[in-house]
Simulated assay, not measured.
Amino acid sequence: MTRPGVSVKRVSADLERSFTELWMSSRVEGGTSPEVAARAASEGKVRAALQREEVRAFLAVTDGDQPVGFVVATHSPFSGLTECPAVAIDQLYVAPKARRHGVARHLLAAVTAYAEKQGCEQIGCNVPSQQRDANRFFARLGFSSQVVRRVTSTSALRRRLGADEPRISLDQILHKRRSLRARASAGASRLAG
């Protein structure tokens, strides 16, 4: 089986719709509901991101101009992890039917050219640790792990930070529960009577 011809184009106004449709597909595949993905696109979040100066998006298309993948990269003069400017791959997506046909390599070649044009010596990406195939793919291309990125929700961190506050004793908790039950019983009795 021959591989389809793939070309990569920078996302411009004429490719924005194709990019947005493929972006929505990637979000749905990642677990976002179609409604939420469509709302984000209709609210202009995708367009606003594409218009930022430091953002570059590239769209991979087959010979028949069928969009099959995209990559979004950002240029940062202060990457935080290195002393030199770097390009970060924020999103890389290839449609399921086009996987294992070299599309991601074409997209990464466009990112590499962009990084060189910006004078960046490094390209980085965040890959979820549970995505073994993606981690292997990037490792084969020479990406090494540099940092472990840990993530939590704001509310969970707030609860954990509150753990330093004085703790309520077990007796106080039991007393509070009993008081709440008593109030609930009294309220139920009044409604029944």
Rank of each mutant, 00 (worst) to 15 (best):
V127L: 11
H106G: 03
V103G: 08
V103L: 03
F137E: 04
Q91N: 13
P128G: 06
H106V: 11
D133K: 14
L108M: 03
S144T: 15
A109I: 12
R105S: 13
A109Q: 14
D133V: 12
A113D: 12
R150W: 01
G119N: 07
N126P: 00
V127Q: 10
Q130K: 11
V103S: 02
N126R: 07
G124H: 08
N126D: 09
R105V: 09
H106M: 07
Y114K: 00
A134I: 00
A109L: 08
S129R: 11
Y114A: 00
V94G: 06
H106D: 03
C120W: 02
V147P: 00
H106R: 13
Y114P: 00
N135P: 01
A110G: 05
L92D: 05
Q118W: 10
A104V: 12
L141D: 07
A98Q: 08
Q118H: 10
F143Q: 04
A110V: 12
H101N: 07
I123A: 05
V103E: 04
A139D: 00
Y93K: 06
R99K: 03
G102H: 07
Q130P: 04
Q130S: 06
A115T: 12
N135V: 00
E116G: 06
R100D: 00
R149E: 08
L108H: 01
A98S: 14
R150D: 01
V111Y: 12
L108V: 02
A109E: 09
D133S: 11
D133H: 14
A113I: 15
A139T: 09
L107T: 08
I123R: 04
Q91W: 01
A113G: 13
C125W: 00
F143C: 07
G142M: 11
V147D: 02
V127W: 15
Q146P: 02
L141F: 04
K97M: 03
N135Y: 01
K97D: 12
Q130Y: 15
V148T: 12
N126I: 11
Q118S: 09
V111E: 07
R132I: 14
E116F: 00
Q122V: 14
A113T: 13
L107M: 02
Q146A: 07
Q91H: 02
V148W: 14
Y114H: 04
R149T: 14
Q91P: 04
V103W: 02
F138E: 03
A109M: 10
V147M: 11
F137C: 01
F137K: 01
G142E: 15
R140M: 08
R136F: 01
E116T: 02
F143Y: 15
R136G: 02
I123M: 06
L92C: 12
R140L: 07
F137S: 00
K97I: 07
D133C: 05
N126H: 14
Q130D: 13
V147A: 15
R100Y: 08
A115Y: 01
A139P: 06
Q146C: 07
R149G: 02
L108N: 02
Q130G: 03
R149A: 03
H101Y: 06
A109V: 09
P128T: 04
G102L: 12
L92E: 11
N135C: 00
S145N: 10
F138I: 07
F138A: 08
A134R: 06
A95G: 00
S144I: 04
R105Q: 10
F143A: 01
V147N: 11
K117I: 08
R136N: 05
S145F: 14
N126Q: 13
Y93H: 13
